[in-house]
Write a protein that binds this DNA or RNA. Structure first.
Length: 462
RNA sequence: UCCUCAGUAGCUCAGUUGGUCAGAGCACCUGACUGUUAAUCAGGGGGUCCUAGGUUCAAGUCCUAGCUGGGGAGCCA
């Protein structure tokens, strides 16, 4: 007999047909003559109830059916006599695949703290919360590809290992095959990278953007979706050393097109989750964050507030409150300022544009005023910056001028500058931190709990 | 990296001015219960009080350092 998934069984009618189901025991409740087993196979947050006649099965088999044990059950799918579920399976055959010693199995029927579950991240997928989060993470990943594919964007695989150290997005992890116990040195006493695997220093990527621009200036619209690495010593609920980033890059798009994309894209993904992950979202809404679904629907129902950095600074200066960090034109906005704009002043997502040139990256398009650039940051409630992007500087003189001002190694960027040298064109793009988006979509509060295996300073377990 | 809070049973925690302080709930085990829903009821086992020093007649409790974790900040996505 072919196995049926719990999701399929629960969505059908109790026809009295014979079915085979396999999964892991969540709970077992025994009373005098009958045992109830809640079985889950990961296909849905819901369990199917298995009803076992205690007198019809060997007692040592029943004893081994404990939380976490894996079973195959054959039985008839019938209407449930109890409340709480519409169908259940009356077991006729039960096979135990794997026992699960209740004395040592760390997961209990009762709730656990997120901190404890993080210590047993190899087992936490078996909880309702992490099952829901991982199913949503999958669905949104799929929706990202669907969104771009449906709109003619090409998925470009930018490199994980990079020889470029000019991205300037943060501290990098070195990639090397040199013997760390016996590092080869040049005559001058420096590390001899000539003998390293690539013959030069290499790192894990901090962004696929520069390579993404190369693709966009030939293919039109591209996007990347891959792992990204930052060796920053950041210990916060919003930072990971290894995270996934989505970076679309579009030739002939200006900053307004870019903002439209950022808003439409994030709304599409939220809509996708509401349409396709309803049960998981309802569970998270009930157990993790009571305002989750309301907040998702609110974001969909309103347009994002768009204003310039200069306008934002004026609002903050007029705001009747004390800032821990001073507000003033030319200073970068701090978390407290962004939070005020999003959560107190506008009460919806905000897109800030036209930041001072001095606080933004070299590749951003310079405005005619000579002091601002066409940057755009999308700020979300609870998370802060979820998207950072810009129209890119396509004029060679202005771009190289800026690179020199900042003292970046011009000659290492020869390949990037070739796009401006040969058939340059206006173009735009942005980066979206995937885990931050999942944080927003699930109502979880720590980024370590929305990625299967979190990497943070001093932690690379599992 | 900085600020701050915490670390006691498998989990979540209580433990007062240093002196019967080794505790509770849940989990687990045993038993009861004729359909349970985080079942219920009765009983039972279970401890490196984070680590290393120090103060004291006496330290889970006070002091110092370290480790680990949470929250906030910076950096950013």
């Amino acid at each position: 007999m072919k196995r049926k998934r719990v999701k399929e069984l629960l969505s059908g009618q109790a026809t009295g047909e014979k079915v085979l189901v396999k999964g892991w025991v969540r709970t077992k409740r025994e009373i005098k003559n009958v045992a109830f087993v809640a079985l889950n196979d990961g296909s849905t947050i819901n369990n199917i109830q298995i009803v076992i006649d205690i007198n019809a099965f060997p007692s040592d088999l029943l004893r081994d059916i404990t939380t976490g044990a894996s079973l195959a059950v054959t039985g008839t799918l019938v209407p449930s006599q109890g409340k709480g579920q519409s169908v259940e399976i009356t077991a006729s055959e039960v096979t135990l695949y794997g026992k699960c010693d209740p004395e040592t199995y760390p997961l209990q029927k009762k709730g656990h703290s997120m901190e404890f579950l993080r210590e047993i991240a190899h087992l936490r997928f078996r909880t309702n919360t992490f099952g829901a989060v991982m199913r949503i993470r999958h669905a949104i990943s799929f929706a990202v590809h669907k969104y771009f594919n449906d709109r003619g964007f090409y998925y470009l695989h930018t490199p994980i290992i990079t020889g470029s150290d000019a991205e300037g997005a943060g501290e990098m992890f070195h990639v090397t095959t040199l013997d760390m116990e016996n590092i080869p040195r040049t005559k001058e006493g420096k590390v001899d990278y000539e003998s390293d695997f690539f013959g030069k220093p290499t790192n894990l990527t901090v962004s696929g953007q520069l390579e993404g621009e190369l693709g966009a200036l030939a293919l039109g619209e591209i996007y990347t979706f891959g792992p990204t690495f930052r060796a920053e010593n950041s210990n916060t609920p919003r930072h990971l050393a290894e995270f996934w980033m989505i970076e679309p890059e579009m030739a002939f798009w200006d900053i307004t097109d870019n903002m439209d994309l950022g808003e439409d894209f994030t709304k599409y993904l939220i809509r996708y989750a509401l349409d396709n992950c309803r049960e998981d979202l309802e569970f998270l809404n009930k157990m993790i964050d009571n305002a989750l679904i309301e907040r998702l629907e609110f974001v969909l129902a309103n347009s994002y507030m768009r204003l310039t950095y200069t306008e934002a600074v004026e609002i903050l200066e007029k705001a009747n409150r004390k800032w821990e960090y001073p507000v003033g034109w030319g200073r970068d906005l701090q978390a407290e300022h962004e939070r005020y704009l999003v959560e107190t002043h506008f009460k919806r997502p905000v897109i800030l544009t036209d930041y001072p040139m001095s606080i933004k990256a070299f590749y951003m398009k310079q405005n005619d005023d000579g002091r601002t650039v066409r940057a755009m940051d999308v700020l979300f409630p609870g998370i802060g910056e979820i998207i950072g992007g810009s129209q890119r500087e396509e004029e060679m003189d202005k771009l190289t001028g800026r690179i020199e001002e900042l003292g970046l190694p011009l000659k290492d960027l020869w390949w990037y500058l070739d796009t401006r040298r040969f058939g340059t064109a206006p173009h735009s793009g942005f980066g979206l931190g995937f885990e931050r988006l999942i944080l927003f979509m699930t109502g979880m509060s720590n980024i370590r709990d929305v990625i299967p295996f979190p990497r943070t300073p001093r932690n690379a377990e599992f």
